[in-house]
Each structure stands twice: as C-alpha cells, then as structure tokens.
Amino acid sequence: MTKQARYGIDDTPIFVIDQSRCIGCEACVQACEECGTHRGQSLIHLERVDRAQSTQTAPMVCMHCEDPTCANVCPADAIKQTEGGIVQSALKPRCIGCSNCVLACPFGVPKYVAEFDQMMKCDMCTDRTSEGYAPMCASVCPSEALWYGTAEEFKASRTGSLIDGWLFGRQHVRTKVFTVVDDLAGGPLDALAAPTRTWLDDPFGLEEAP
C-alpha cells in the first residue's frame, strides 16, 4: 500500500475522490485550512447528506472542470485555469463578490467568504502540488476517500474504475479530478439518477423476520 511521498513532474499524479468511502471525520476540513495558500480558510466541503436517515457524508473538493462553469459566469473574469488545468481561486483584485460562481458550479464548490467579500475555492493546494506533495486533504484522509497519486498506484491498490465525466441534466462536464465507479459501462455519472435501495433502508431488520 506504499505510495510515493513526493511526485516528480513525469509522474503526473491524479486526484481521486471516492465519496462513498467518506467517514465524515472532517480531517480534510481541518487540514484544508492549514494549507499555505489559504491559511485559516477551509475550502473543502463536508456535509451530512441527511443525518436523520444515515451517517453518510458528502465531501467535495473542486473537481477542476475542463471547461469550468464558474469561470464562464464570472462577470469580473476573475477565475483562471493554470496550464495544468487547475481552476484557481478568484483573483483577489478582480473578484467583486457577486457569487455567480458559487451558484452556478454544478458541484457546489466555490465559497463566498463574506468577511473578505470574495469567492475562494479549492486550488488543490498549489503550494504543495507544485512541489510534488499531495494536497492537504488527500494527505490526511483516513479512509482514502480523497486520494492523490499516480494512476498506476491507484490501479495497484484499489478496485473500481476511474471516471471523469458527469451529467447534470443535458450538460456533460469533464473534470480533472477523477471519481470511482464499479463499472464504466454505466456512462458518465448522472447527478440526477434515482438513489438505489440497500439494507440501510432497514438497518435494524425491523421489517425483517426475527
């Protein structure tokens, strides 16, 4: 299960988010604000999906879309992509705090920080990744729901297929961040798909024969 501690340019490490493995511990949330590019501001999202029903939690980093909706709806032209495809936080001098990006992002990623009157978002810890280190969240994630490494390392240690395509209604979105599915045959992940039913609908067997 050994991964590299530090990656070179030729390793082309990838970020993988497997939300299903999240245990909701918030290590990522705590570690995010320790990142040098936005110290004191945690930019990852982690929420309970519906605590009354389950302990499932929803972690969300920026998926770094190939053609980011956030940048396209920004009136100030403040959201830029790096050559490596990282969609950066709004340029501080330009962002006028309108929140268009916050509302339009299909993944619900950018945050409007009222205190600073500007948008901030996950930049995949540019200070770390530019030096070959994993982003803070993927460094600490105890369940590896957030993971950073090479595709080969992923294949060697994990099941499931990597996928980078999403459907939001008619909109197809391709992302730099990968997620995991059992089977690629199902096509892009459909955010509007109906939920499946599992034993979790009746965890205590209240409807089951004793």
Binding site: Q19, Q56, T57, M60, G108
Partner: peptide
C-alpha cells in the same frame, strides 16, 4: 454536493 455524492455512491 449531496446529489453528486449519492450518484457516485450508487455506482460503487
């Protein structure tokens, strides 16, 4: 964010 998580979980 919840929809994205549920959609992914359904596929694993």
């Amino acid at each position: 964010r919840a929809s994205v998580t549920l959609a992914q979980s359904a596929r694993v």
